[in-house]
Design a protein around this nucleic acid. Structure first.
Lengths: 244, 244
DNA sequence: CGCCTGCTTGACCTCGCTCAAGGCCCGTGG
DNA sequence: CCACGGGCCTTGAGCGAGGTCAAGCAGGCG
């Protein structure tokens, strides 16, 4: 029964901040959740929507995207397990971006009303939700810098370093490898590079011995080496001390 | 007495969301504020800081910046009147970016503790603060797309369209012009373009008749024309209906 | 078996970067 | 009052990182 996964997954996320009180756990467990499967390329939410639900990703990777008039598309964020890609809809009436499943996704949906009550009755959880959106914003900042300033290879390396770090934090993959279901096309949309150049940059990173990447598996034998090359510093992910 | 400006300015900001209750206004007016002048190139906050205050900009323009190992700097956000550039420090222990005065800035500082009490006693204000950070995130998303996908001229045009729109919303300048104290160097750091190319792009926008820009004044005679050229759509600024 | 999706490679071209120098405005000091 | 210097803007010339176009390849699925 997939809905069963929701509460433990969310509780785990909260507990990364601080130990939850009994009442808080109970409240989370009482949340009415609807479990949904979104196939790859399906939309979790579309630009212009006025969502009445929030969604937490339980499995899979989604992306926040914006499509320009000329058809070019930018992925401005990746969302993975324990992320609420559309938490913003709780306070912003209208979606200003699409949220797309980049792989098949399993998602838990909760009505806004339920989330709002949860927040009002448990102010610490409200703060925790708020904090999630702040970390998301910190990641956006990094992406602006990444896309704006770094040359192709480092830009890609930074993105990969960030992704493996975040996946490890939510228990997907291990320190040195993670499932990596994204295509080179996805990476090109996320980095603002052409697909061809992504391909060549990957090969270059491979030949430097920094990454191995094939068939949905990313291996980073030497994380510090990759992070050094990419000038990646995980501070902006704001992982509480005890988890480092 | 400059501190006097603080409460009205903040109340005005809140009122853009919804009419405040008497008690909420009183609470805002009771906030203990310290007024500070930050000269151009001064820091409001530095990366690595653990701030104990939040700051609202009353006058001037600040920027969120990140500096790379090679000395290149990206500006990932502009902050202006009524913005709280470091509101995130309320929930994130450590700053992951610098906040720099791009012009001389007048700023109101409030202790975290005071803001937190305000939030706990006035949940609607808390939501309003949260919402501010969500709009900020929406702007980051746009910047990622802008820097990642748009060619130079449109990228610059989009940034200018956003800036004049935001300034107008907070009562700085009018529909067709605004004070524009940023240098071409600032614009180059914000767009990820070289200074030289910013210069040429500005000239090109000028010759298209889309903007006039000199001596600290930006004139946009035909806002729709600029917005069309830049594919700028203000939805992502999430301005409540009644203000449109 | 054949198709579709995603990866790879080659050739060519261009947008935007770098380097370098000159001009303008304004504030400061002689 | 003028000389000087420092920001900031402007212009020219040459180059290179990365884009585009086009084609071939490989693996998984109906």
């Amino acid at each position: 029964m997939p809905t069963r996964d929701f509460a433990p997954t969310l509780i785990d996320r909260f507990q990364k901040q601080y130990p939850l009180a009994e009442t808080e756990m109970r409240a989370v467990e009482r949340l009415p959740v609807k479990s949904v499967l979104v196939p790859r390329h399906g939309f979790l939410v579309r630009e212009g929507d006025h969502p009445s639900h929030c969604q937490m990703i339980i499995e899979g990777i989604a992306g926040t995207t914006q499509t320009l008039e000329n058809g070019r598309r930018q992925i401005s964020a990746f969302h993975m397990r324990q992320d609420f890609p559309d938490l913003l809809s709780l306070h912003l009436e209208i979606m200003d971006c699409d949220i797309v499943a980049l792989t098949d996704c399993r998602v838990g949906m909760v009505e806004h009303g339920a989330v709002k009550s949860l927040c009002h009755e448990n102010p610490r959880l409200a703060d925790s939700f708020w904090r999630m959106t702040l970390v998301e914003a910190a990641i956006y900042r990094q992406w602006v810098t990444n896309v704006g300033q770094r040359p192709a290879e480092q830009r890609l390396a930074h993105l990969l370093a960030e992704t493996i770090t975040r996946l490890e934090l939510v228990g997907v993959g291990s320190r040195n490898s993670c499932p990596f279901p994204l295509t080179q096309g996805d990476l090109s949309e996320a980095t603002g590079m052409s697909l061809v150049h992504v391909n060549r940059s990957i090969q270059s990173l491979r030949s430097r011995g920094l990454i191995e990447l094939e068939r949905g598996l990313l291996i980073v034998a030497d994380r510090p080496a990759l992070e050094k090359f990419a000038a990646f510093d995980a501070t902006y992910l704001h992982v509480p001390e005890r988890d480092i």
